[in-house]
C-alpha cells in the first residue's frame, strides 16, 4: 500500500516473497475492504466468500511499550508480539490445510458480525485521497496536500492515510513526531485492534 512504488521495491526485492505482491498506490483496498492499517488481512475462500473479514494480520499493539532509555521495545512486549505473530501464522496454515473445517474460518453469521463499517465521512476521505493522489501525479502537490489534510480529519482512525500522507523520516518510515504524538494520544484505543483468536494476547 505505497503511493511511491520505488519506496516499496527494495523491501520486496529483499524479501523475495513466493506469494504474489500487488501494488496499491491509491489505497483502493482501504476503500473496498475498510482497511485502516498495515498489516491487515482478509481470508477469502475458494468461492470468493470472506471467512475472516478485515482484521489485524498478526501484529499486536506494543507501540506504547517502547523503552526510550534502552532504545528498544521492552523484552516482554517483544515476546508477546512474537507469540502473536506465530499464533496468527499457525491459524493461517490451519486454514490453508483444512479450509472451511478450520476452527479459524468463521461461519457466515460470525463473519458478518465482525465486519467493520464504512461511514459517509470515511468514504469521503477515500474519495479525497484518490483525488489528491491524482492531482499529485499531475504535479499539483499543494492542492493534493490540502486534500490529504482533509482526509486525515475525515478519517482519523486510518493509519494508512495518516502515515502515507505525513512526513517520512530519512529511513522512509512515517514514525516522526506527528506519528508518535498521534500514537500517544490514542488513549483507550489500540494502534492494532485486537483480533478474536484463541490464545491471542
Amino acid at each position: 500500500m505505497d503511493a511511491d512504488v520505488e519506496a516499496a521495491r527494495p523491501w520486496v526485492a529483499e524479501a523475495s516473497p513466493t506469494f504474489i505482491t500487488l501494488i496499491d498506490q491509491n489505497h483502493l483496498l482501504s476503500s473496498l475492504y475498510n482497511m485502516v492499517n498495515v498489516p491487515q488481512a482478509v481470508w477469502i475462500d475458494e468461492q470468493g466468500r470472506v471467512v475472516r473479514p478485515t482484521e489485524t494480520g498478526g501484529s499486536i499493539d506494543i507501540l506504547r511499550e517502547f523503552d526510550p532509555e534502552a532504545g528498544a521495545f521492552k523484552p516482554e512486549a517483544m515476546a508477546r508480539a512474537g507469540a502473536a505473530k506465530a499464533l496468527y501464522m499457525e491459524a493461517v496454515e490451519d486454514w490453508a490445510r483444512n479450509g472451511a473445517d478450520s476452527r479459524f474460518a468463521y461461519d457466515p453469521d460470525a463473519a458478518r458480525q465482525r465486519v467493520s463499517r464504512q461511514t459517509p465521512e470515511t468514504m469521503l476521505a477515500h474519495a479525497k485521497f484518490q483525488l489528491g493522489r491524482h492531482l499529485a501525479s499531475l504535479g499539483r502537490v499543494v492542492e493534493a496536500e490540502a486534500l490529504f489534510t482533509e482526509c486525515r480529519e475525515l478519517h482519523p482512525d486510518s493509519w494508512n492515510i495518516f502515515r502515507e500522507t505525513t512526513e517520512k523520516m530519512d529511513t522512509g518510515i512515517a514514525a516522526g513526531e506527528a506519528f508518535w504524538g498521534k500514537v500517544m494520544g490514542l488513549g483507550e484505543k489500540q494502534y492494532y485492534a485486537s483480533i478474536d483468536m484463541d490464545g491471542m494476547p
Partner: peptide
Amino acid sequence: DFTLPDFSGKLHSLTDFRRQRVLLITWASW
C-alpha cells in the same frame, strides 16, 4: 473484486484466484 499490478506491471484480479483460498494481507514501506 479488484485488479492491481505486480512489480513487473502485470495485472492480477482477485477473481483469477477462484478455486484457491486467498490470504489478502497488506504491507507498506512507510
